[in-house]
Design a protein around this nucleic acid. Structure first.
Lengths: 251, 251
DNA sequence: AATGCATTTTTGTGATCACAAATTCAGCGC
DNA sequence: GCGCTGAATTTGTGATCACAAAAATGCATT
């Protein structure tokens, strides 16, 4: 099972960290709907902990931009707009392009092997039509490159950015794959990494991100909104199979 | 009095936010020594609040990289190393270069006027030898440019990066000014902004950051450490003029 | 039926408490 | 002196409580 947390807060066993991991997991795998309101007590109830660790985890995610806070102090999953996607696109092109360039200069043999492996597994999943593992493997491929850059602060920033685009990429991924000409680009990226060609690696990475997020931006409606927003709230869920939206234990 | 918080969480009156602002203020104005340990109860005591808001504020700052957390769960001001400075330099060149480029395309007349004003005030402070306001005005100049870019997520990221370099820039600023040839670069940047020349604006911004942080990196000792680290701890401060390190009220 | 208002419920905030892990300190033996 | 081991203190964590702001609900009037 691939680890979701890529940073060094791995060995943190605090409840707060576990709640953080759970929420992050739920967010990137699309168990929260964009625009959905998330209350502290709801999360605490689902995860079976008190408010304290939930507050700290949620506040951290708000600080990272994964959730947003209304002026009236309620937390919700951010809605995506065309402008926001384009801003994220340009930022990600810079930072992930930089990471690719650094990776070209610093990647070790086992690291490039790992990158190659991820690229292969993307193809396998894609030919199978398994878009869930496809997406997961694309993530692994990218972060294998970023890890090879050996820049901890940069990695942390990139993770934060993925957290913001994550829920929507998940939502829109099936559509996106069909329009993709990814494999060739990834091969060129790998070649650049192994040749130590930083400029080429950066260029390939930038192109990949530009293509993906420009596509997402193109899905906006006339108001600039993306993915209509199911403004589901989490409260009053008296129905039998209660919380199908966000089921997860702390463990 | 210039506002420290540039983002939109301005109207937040919660204690947590006030503690966050206080800590941030104290950090950027150098009232914490690099490597200094910061305990929750100490901060709570100084600011006269309970642990709850202090925990949330400090955790957010840890998430932003302004403080760091030991494996043994204690919070301290990060020590700076050459590698970290160089990493921050490259990241900042990308992001602040991007912001300058966007500003060249989007800046309004009043915004460029504000930028010009800040540039003038830097010169005034510098001829006076007033390095404190000098540094403050440099900050205002930069953030006036970034604000003109009108990219909220980008602005937030840049603020986080300044928070990480902040304490050290403060510490090292007097040395730095003497070696500076800043004014000409700023004039060229302003010209590029007013001409709508995004590439030139980016280039000038990148050069400015490269020069500043390369200089800081050059101050590292043979172990790669910067600014010897006064490993002062905050506890057991029974001496009369007790906490001169971090004096501040909440409001 | 729609609207305005008062009441009830929900929800975030901050303080406090209990507890365990970590740190510091004291005293001992070498 | 120096290092080690015990107790004593400090410190972060999580749970709980009280409270006020916000949201939802019920009800009366038009």
């Amino acid at each position: 099972m691939p680890r979701t947390a890529t940073t060094l807060d791995a060995a943190d066993t605090s409840l707060r960290q576990q709640v953080y991991n759970s929420l992050r997991e739920a967010l990137t795998s699309g168990r929260f709907a964009p625009g959905q309101k998330v209350t502290f007590r709801y999360v605490a109830g689902v995860l079976g902990v008190s408010l304290t660790p939930v507050r700290e985890a949620l506040r951290r995610l708000v600080a990272e931009g994964a959730f947003e806070m209304n002026p009236n102090r309620s937390v919700r999953v951010p809605l995506m707009t065309r402008d926001k996607v384009l801003e994220l696109r340009d930022i990600r092109m810079e930072l992930e392009g930089l990471a690719a360039a650094k990776a070209a200069l610093a990647a070790t043999r086992p690291q490039t092997a790992e990158i190659r492996r991820a690229a292969r597994e993307i193809l396998v999943a894609r030919t199978r039509g398994d878009s869930a593992t496809d997406r997961q493997k694309v993530r692994e491929f990218h972060f294998a490159v970023y890890a090879a850059a050996a820049q901890p602060t940069l990695l942390r920033l990139i993770e934060g950015l993925w957290l913001q685009t994550g829920p929507y990429m998940n939502l829109l991924y099936p559509d996106f794959i069909s329009s993709s000409r990814g494999p060739a680009g990834r091969q060129r990226l790998i070649a650049a990494l192994e040749a130590g060609d930083a400029a080429a690696a950066r260029r390939e990475m930038e192109n990949d991100i530009r293509r993906a997020l420009s596509y997402v931006a193109g899905l906006a409606d006339e108001n600039g909104n993306i993915a209509p927003a199911v403004p589901a709230t989490t409260r009053k869920r008296r129905s039998p199979a209660a919380s199908a939206v966000f089921e997860l234990q702390v463990n």
